[in-house]
Amino acid sequence: MRAAPLLAVDGLRMHFFTKAGVVKAVDGVSFTVGRGEILGLVGESGSGKSMTGYSIIGLVDPPGRIVGGSIVFDGQDLTRLDAAAWRAVRGNRIAMIFQDPMMTLNPVLRIDTQIVEAVRAHADVSRESALARAREALVRVGIASPDERLRAYPHQFSGGMRQRVAIAIALVNGPDLIIADEPTTALDVTIQGQILFEMQKVCRESGTALIWITHDLSVVAGLADEVCVMYAGRFVESGPVADVLDRPLHPYSRGLIESVPSRNARGQPLRQIPGMTPSLLGLGAGCPFRERCASATARCAESPEVTEPAPGRRLRCFHPAH
C-alpha cells in the first residue's frame, strides 16, 4: 500500500435543493489521487463529474450543498473548513481550470492583473515579484514574449492561448493539485493535443497531481494513470487506466468504451448504449444504469455496495463482466 494519498474523496454527496425537488448531482462518489498522479474522471454530461470538481475546490453555489462524505486533502477534511480557510486552499494548493477559455478570463482586466492578483491573494509579495512569477508561469506553459502578453487583454488572444494563460494562472502558486474541467473540449483538435501535452509535461515536472474531468475516453487513455467512471451522479468503477480500458467490469464503462470509434474495429458498426441518461430529479435507490443495462436483474433495484474485485480496482455493480 502506498503512503496516504494527497486527496481522498469518500462517499461525497452534493445535492441541489431546487423548487422542483432535490437533485442529487453527486451521490456517493469515492476516489483517491496520489501526489503527482493523474486521475481521469470520466462521465457523460450530467453525470456529476464537474460538480465533483466544484465540490473539491469549494465552489458549490446555493441551492447546491455538500450533504455528506468527506474530502480529505493532505490530511485535512475540506468539508469542515470555514470559508476563509477554504479560500486559502483554493488557488493556492488546489487550482482549477475551466472548460471554455473564452469565458474564464475576465474580458476587462489585463492578463498581468489577472495573474498578479492570484499570486498576491496567497503570498504577501510585492507587485514586482508577483509579476516575475507571472512571467515565469507564462513561459512554463509555452507562451513566447511573456512581457508583451502580460500587458494584453484576453480578447487579443486566441482560444488556445487563453487556455494556456488559464493554466499558467492555475500553476502560478505551485499547487499540489489541479482540477481540469474538460479544458480542451472547446478547442481545435490540434490545439487540444498541444494543451494536453503541455499539461502532462508541467504536471510531471512539478509533481502536481491532476484530476482531468472529461467525457472523452481517448484523452484519458493517453494522459491518466488512474480512471474513475461516474454515471448519474454516482460512482461506477475505478482503477489503473490500462486495466479499466482493457477490461471494464461495469456494464456502463464497457458500453462507454465500445462506443468510442477505434482503429482496430474499423468498418464495424459502433455499439451504442440504448436509452437515455435518467433525470437526476427524484432519482431513487438502486443502480441508476439498470434501465439501460443488458445484465440487469431484479436485484439491481437495490443499491450495490462498492467492492474491490482486484487489487487497485473498485466497482459498484452486482453483475460485473468477466
Partner: peptide, 24 residues
Amino acid sequence: DYVKFARAKGLPQSRVIGVHVLKN
C-alpha cells in the same frame, strides 16, 4: 465563468465583487 475562475484563484470575496464583477 470568469467570476467562478476568479473565486477558484482564492481571491477574497471583496476583490471578486469589487473588481471582477463591478468592472464588468
